[in-house]
């Protein structure tokens, strides 16, 4: 896989490799950078960041996530039960 550039929406999320990527923002000064986001693992990156943050092949193994593991993340704080309306 290749690193993202400012002009193209990347093919995969650097962190979880999900293939659905959203363009979140263009730089206020035109053409400098683009911010992308992954709707699966919610990772966000800017096209001008160091390669290990934008290129799925260079993303550090220690920080990778697998989409299938996301539902089992710990919920903090727990969601309390609704009060009964009386």
């Amino acid at each position: 896989m290749t690193a993202t550039t400012a002009d193209t929406v990347p093919a995969a999320c650097p962190r979880c490799r999900s293939g659905k990527i959203e363009m979140r923002s263009k730089s206020p000064v035109v053409g400098i950078w683009t911010v992308f986001g992954c709707p699966t693992c919610l990772y966000v990156w800017r096209s001008t960041e160091p390669e290990e943050n934008v290129n799925p092949d260079k993303y550090p193994a220690a920080f990778r996530l697998r989409p299938e593991d996301l539902p089992s993340l710990q919920v903090v704080p727990p969601i309390p039960p609704r009060r009964s309306s009386s």
Binding site: R15, G37, C41, L42, Y43, V44, W45, R46, E49, P50, E52, N53, P60, A62, F63
Partner: peptide, 8 residues
């Protein structure tokens, strides 16, 4: 981003 492993 502050640290390279930050999620955003």
């Amino acid at each position: 981003r502050l640290n390279r492993g930050d999620g955003g």
